[in-house]
Nucleic acid binder design. Structure first.
Lengths: 226, 226
DNA sequence: TGGCTTGTGTGACTTAATCACAGACAAACG
DNA sequence: CGTTTGTCTGTGATTAAGTCACACAAGCCA
C-alpha cells in the first residue's frame, strides 16, 4: 500500500496507464502495490526461477541478459523508468520459468505487483491491458533486432554503434570496461580490445583504462551504419 | 462470415479460446471472420509493411524470418495450426511496421480477422485476450532461444539439433537442400555443406542430393546437446 | 613498499563467413 | 537420344571472430 501523496503523484506521472484508468482503479492500485528500493548491481531474477512479483520501474535501470556455457553474456534489453520486466509478466501468466537473468545496473525504485493483481487487472482495466501487451510486443521487436545484429552485422560496426549510442552527451565518453562492452554485445573481451585498438589507430577514439573517449563521432557513426 | 457447420466445428476444435468463450462471442466471431487458402511458398508479409489482417492458422505452416544485407536468412519461428502470426497482432495494436518476412511453407488454411475486431474482442473476451497474450509471450521466449543459439552455440551442434528435430519420423530422413538448412540456422550454404560432409565422414549421416539420411541418431543427439 | 585485484595487450590456434569457382545431377526440349 | 539450362553441392583461399594462455600495467590499500 502506498499512501504518501508525493509518491503516488510521481508514480502517476511515470505510468500513462494509471492516468488513463478510472479513479477506482487508481485507488485499488495504490492499495495493493508496494514500493521497493534496490541497490546497483543487485541480481533480480535468475534464469529458471519462478517470478514472485511484477516490478514496474520508477527510476534506475536494469539489464536482462543471457549467459552462455563459456560464461559469455549478451544483453537482450534494458528496463528503464516507466517500463517493466515484462518477461516476468509473461512467466506469471503462462507459468513458464524465467528464461534469462536480470540485474540492476543503477539503484532502482520500483513498484511491486502481485501476480494475482496482474491477471485480475488485465481483465478489468483496458489501460493496464494495453500497457502490458504493448510492452511485451515491443520487447519482441527489440529482441528480433538483437537477432538481426548478431546474425548479420560485423563486430566492428556493432561496436561503433554501441559507442555512438552510449557516449555521455557532450563529454563524448563511455565509462565501461572492455569486458562490460563485450557482455553487452555478446562477444568476447579480447575481440572488443582488438577492435577498439584498431579504432584508436584510425584516430576515431582514444582508449583509457575503464573508459573510451570519442574523437571523431562522424566517422564512427558512418562505420556504425554499414 | 463462416456458416458451414463443418468448417466452424473444425475451427472450434483447433482454437481453445473459442471453446472457452461464451456462445455470443462464438456467434460474432464466425460472423465477422473469413476463411482463406494460400498456396505453398507464398509471401505473406513483407518487412516494413503494415498488416491488414490477423491470420489464425488452421492447417499448414508458415515461416517468419529475417534477411541480412548479404542475402543470408535466419528463421525466427514457425506458425502452425492453432497459432497465429502474432507479430501482426502486435503491429496492429501498436501501429509498428512488421519487422520481418513471412512466407507459407505448405498450403495454408487460415481465418482472417479485422484489426478492429482484434482490439474490440480483447476488451470483451478474456479467452481471446489470454490467447493473444500467451502467443506473444511464447514467441518472445522462442526468439530469446534463437539469440542464445546463435550467440553461444557452435554451428555443428546446432546443425545436429536441426537434423534430429526435423527428421521425418521412422524414415529418419530430412528432405531439404543445404541452402534451406542454412537459411533456417542463419549461416551460409557452404558452412552447412562442409559440416554435413564432416558428419558423413563420421558416419552419422549420409548425404543425398536434396536430402539427408540419418544413420546414427544417438550420436547425433549426443552432439546436438553439447 | 610490496602484494593484490582488476583491466588490457597479444600471439597462436580454431571455427565461421565470404568469395570465386568447378562439377554433378535433373528436368526440359529439340 | 543428346544437349541445354537451372539447381544443388564441393572446395580452396582469404578474412573475421572466438578461444586459450599468458604477460603486463594501473590502481588500491595494508
Amino acid at each position: 500500500m502506498i499512501t504518501d501523496s508525493s509518491a503516488t503523484d510521481r508514480i502517476m506521472g511515470q505510468f500513462d496507464f494509471l492516468q488513463q484508468a478510472d479513479n477506482s482503479f487508481q485507488r485499488r492500485f495504490f492499495q495493493s502495490v508496494s514500493l521497493i528500493n534496490l541497490p546497483a548491481a543487485q541480481p533480480i531474477c535468475q534464469q529458471g526461477s519462478q517470478c514472485s512479483h511484477l516490478a514496474l520501474v520508477l527510476s534506475g535501470q536494469a539489464r536482462v541478459y543471457k549467459i552462455g556455457d563459456n560464461g559469455r553474456e549478451i544483453t537482450l534489453y534494458r528496463i528503464g523508468p516507466g517500463e517493466s520486466c515484462i518477461l516476468t509478466a509473461s512467466c506469471i501468466v503462462n507459468g513458464h520459468p524465467f528464461p534469462a537473468f536480470a540485474v540492476s545496473e543503477e539503484p532502482i525504485e520500483a513498484v511491486l505487483i502481485n501476480p494475482a493483481d496482474v491477471v485480475r487487472w488485465s481483465d478489468e482495466t483496458p489501460a493496464w491491458r494495453k500497457y502490458l501487451f504493448s510492452l511485451v510486443s515491443s520487447r519482441l521487436s527489440e529482441v528480433i533486432g538483437i537477432v538481426e545484429e548478431i546474425a548479420f552485422r560485423r563486430v566492428d560496426t556493432r561496436l561503433a554503434s554501441f559507442l555512438v549510442q552510449n557516449a555521455e552527451p557532450a563529454r563524448e565518453r563511455i565509462e565501461q570496461t572492455h569486458q562490460a562492452i563485450a557482455s553487452d554485445l555478446g562477444t568476447s573481451r579480447e575481440v572488443v580490445s582488438r577492435v577498439l585498438k584498431d579504432l584508436e589507430q584510425r584516430r576515431l577514439i582514444q582508449i583509457q583504462r575503464g573508459a573510451i573517449q570519442i574523437l571523431d563521432r562522424a566517422k564512427l557513426a558512418a562505420l556504425s551504419n554499414q
